[in-house]
Amino acid sequence: MKINVVEKYTAAIIELKGDIIGGPHNEEFSNTLRKLISDQKKNIVIDLAETKYMNSSGLGMLISGYTTVKNSGGDLKLANVTKKIESLLVITKLSSIFENYSTVEEAVKSFS
């Protein structure tokens, strides 16, 4: 998994590329979030356009990230979720906490 951060208007977009399987990537991901939060960038979009596979540990990583951002008073939303991951979010009913947009632009707009 590769992590790339870009900023657009009032939001920070974290692009996750490759398989999201937690483990060693957890720390990198949570450090990225912590840095954004400490820079007062609390409107965060996770762009999953280039993520095809996510296992339960990867899902755990996203949930823990969501909690971190929410606790800091910010919000974390998803964009470009593939069908497979969307069905995972539906089954786990995580779709009830993760706002999910079909494009990064829509996700960014939702903050304003």
Binding site: G22, N26, S56, S57, L59, G60, M61, I63, S64, T67, T68, T92
Partner: peptide, 8 residues
Amino acid sequence: IDAARFVT
């Protein structure tokens, strides 16, 4: 349990 763990 910690935030990254869960159960279905």
